[in-house]
């Protein structure tokens, strides 16, 4: 709330929100490096690998303990999804789906940490900006979507052959009498897949973060005058409600990202399109 406290006009509200949506970055233009995004996503990935490795090393046969049980249930859940919606056999798909699900979920989960907490700690150690949720930075979802797109291209060409893949561009939506339109249309369709995959995750998480910021502003208004503390109970109620609802959103978004990855890669593996 420190940002809202500094001014006493509507401008400080805008400043507060803009401050929270600013990445800690170096470089300019195309070569901008969003350090907070990179650091937090790598840290969460490391956490995932370390915890997963520890569970795997300490795995016991027979009746598993609490945490091992939890991890196994996630594994089983992902495996069922892959089995149900992926035709054929590819050892890469299940680990990929599991990684995407858990990693995206963890990055989304950063949204549930109080919006001012980590940026406040950041200012103590001298960081001017800190955007905590990696998935609210467009770079992260689009990078993941591009990786999936690359894999889709690779398996399309591997399974169908370069000729078979290009043939799909020639005759796909309108038959053989409208080849130029078909080429454009299929190209648009292929580009639309990673675009929608990345933008969906980004849009949902960005909007969720913004709602958290707006709710935080309710209590922040008390800095203008103690009388506005009347809004504080409302903030608590709203924050709790949105928090509970947002747990659903982050899980659903991680799930959708995973499922669509499996489906797109499955489409790449079927010879008849």
């Amino acid at each position: 709330m420190s940002q809202a406290a500094e001014g006493s006009s509507g401008a400080s509200t805008v400043e507060y929100i803009q401050h929270h949506l600013q990445n800690l970055s170096v470089g300019e233009g195309f070569m901008t490096w969003n350090l907070d995004t990179i650091f937090i996503s790598i840290a969460l990935g490391t956490l995932m690998v370390v915890v997963g490795g520890r569970v795997a090393r300490n795995a016991t046969e027979g009746v598993p303990g609490g945490f091992q049980n939890f991890v196994e249930s996630i594994l089983e859940f992902v495996q069922t999804q892959v089995k149900d919606s992926f035709p054929g056999h590819n050892p890469l798909i299940a680990p990929l789906a599991l990684t995407i699900f858990v990693w995206v979920w963890l990055m989304n989960f950063m949204d549930l940490i109080p919006v001012d907490l980590l940026p406040l700690i950041g200012t103590w150690i001298g960081l001017p900006y800190l955007k905590v949720v990696p998935t609210t930075d467009l770079s992260t979802p689009m990078a993941m979507a591009l990786v999936v797109f690359g894999l889709t291209l690779f398996y399309n060409i591997k399974v169908k052959g370069l000729g078979g893949y290009l043939k799909m561009f020639l005759f796909h939506p309108f038959g053989k009498f409208a080849v130029p339109a078909n080429i454009v249309m299929t190209t648009i369709e292929e580009i639309a897949k990673p675009l929608s995959l990345g933008l969906r995750l980004f849009g949902n998480m960005f909007a969720g973060e913004l709602v958290f910021l707006l709710i935080a502003l309710l209590g922040g208004a008390a800095a203008l005058g103690a009388g506005l503390l009347i809004w504080f109970p409302l903030q608590v109620v709203l924050d709790l409600a949105w928090l509970l609802f947002h747990i659903l959103v982050i899980t659903l978004q991680a799930f959708i990202f995973m499922v669509l990855t499996i489906v797109y890669l499955g489409m790449a593996h079927t010879t008849e399109h």
Binding site: S85, P87, L199, T270
Partner: peptide, 19 residues
């Protein structure tokens, strides 16, 4: 061949806009 093609329907709205 896929058993759950319906899962693609999750993203129907976004398919329109993103195309």
């Amino acid at each position: 061949e896929s058993k759950k093609p319906g899962l693609l329907l999750i993203g129907v709205g976004q398919i329109l806009t993103s195309m």
